[in-house]
Design a protein around this nucleic acid. Structure first.
Lengths: 186, 186
DNA sequence: CTCGTTTTGGATAGCTCGGTCCAAAACCTG
DNA sequence: CAGGTTTTGGACCGAGCTATCCAAAACGAG
């Protein structure tokens, strides 16, 4: 009789901050305010809860990103800038970095099942962005000789790099100037 | 009476592949071929051994990178290209990604001591690269209006992003085209 | 070869881990 | 209020964790 969404949300933040292995079930209990029984009754296992948390994180971030990618009222360059800026201006109180990136790094090589989930999500964003880049090319906003998919991949590699930098605690102004440098590639 | 360097090397690869938390002392024993006693006698703790492994990794990669950065016989653009290419063409048999990036992501927010070590190393590379970029600017190779330090930061953000992509198992040709896109920013 | 030191394997300690279980409490439905 | 179901707290489980200990083996100096 508790709010499952709220519990998943709390778990998500703990995993996000500390990683999968370093997060104990005890910490999940205190973070969610629930007892062991409630958690295991509802979510079956630590791993299953992690899956839910990761999916929830992806839903939130991906939908927000797609929305931004499709803002056809903005030049593509501006949309890309804002995508990257979001990595630099996180909500205060949120853990640093990005749960998806953290998961790729920590569990990628040992958990193909997880990688597949992440890849599917990644592919959606890439495709959407490449589509918009192509449109921008026909509109003359972007050099038509460039490969739209390569550019989309590039944007997400830079975003990943920014997320890593955030985990190191890189200064905001460093990240900002990196974004401006990155936009020169367009 | 065993080869300490060899043991650190073996440990390094296990940590690199699986991360700190997910690596058990048992795995370190089998990977090094040593017994628990030998390891604890020589290295004191799992954490201390990790420190050594990380430092060793940094020594190797940083020296190689500095060497490349200072290849004044090559245009700066070419040097940057090769730095990035190394992320795409790892030695076969090496774990995917980069131990430094993995460590930043896994332990960065919870281990300031470690972050300091990583930062010092990072700063050395950044400074060296910025210096060469500045030189390239006075030589007319690079647009003089750009900030050399921002460009150096940019290169290392892209490199980090590539290392994350490698952990996901990104196709080589995707990474290649990302590098070419990234070089457009110069 | 001998004796003092170092290194080794293997048992073991002491915890914490993820996960289970069950009785009591809280909750619905009529 | 009653009765059956769901949810909860908290004791508990076996396993695996990091780290220690110690006796035997290997080593090195004289």
């Amino acid at each position: 009789m508790f709010d499952e969404d709220q519990a998943v949300d709390a778990a998500m933040r703990v995993f996000w901050a500390s990683g999968y292995e370093a997060t104990s079930t005890q910490e999940l209990c205190t973070a969610t305010g629930l007892g062991r029984s409630s958690i295991y009754n509802t979510f079956s296992s630590k791993r299953a809860l992690f899956d839910l948390a990761l999916r929830r994180y992806m839903e939130q971030t991906t939908s927000a990103q797609l929305e931004l990618i499709r803002r056809t009222d903005l030049p593509i360059r501006e949309r890309v800038r804002q995508i990257l800026w979001r990595a630099v201006e996180p909500d205060p109180g949120d853990p640093s970095g990005c749960l998806v990136i953290n998961t790729v790094v920590e569990l990628g090589p040992t958990d193909p099942e997880l990688v597949e989930i992440l890849d599917r999500d990644h592919a959606v964003k890439l495709k959407a962005l490449a589509l918009e880049i192509r449109a921008a090319q026909t509109a003359g906003e972007v050099d038509a000789s460039r490969d739209p998919e390569a550019l989309a991949d590039y944007v997400y590699v830079v975003l990943g790099g920014l997320r890593v930098a955030a985990r190191r605690g890189a200064a905001t102004r460093v990240q900002e100037s990196v974004i401006e440098a990155a936009l020169h590639a367009f």
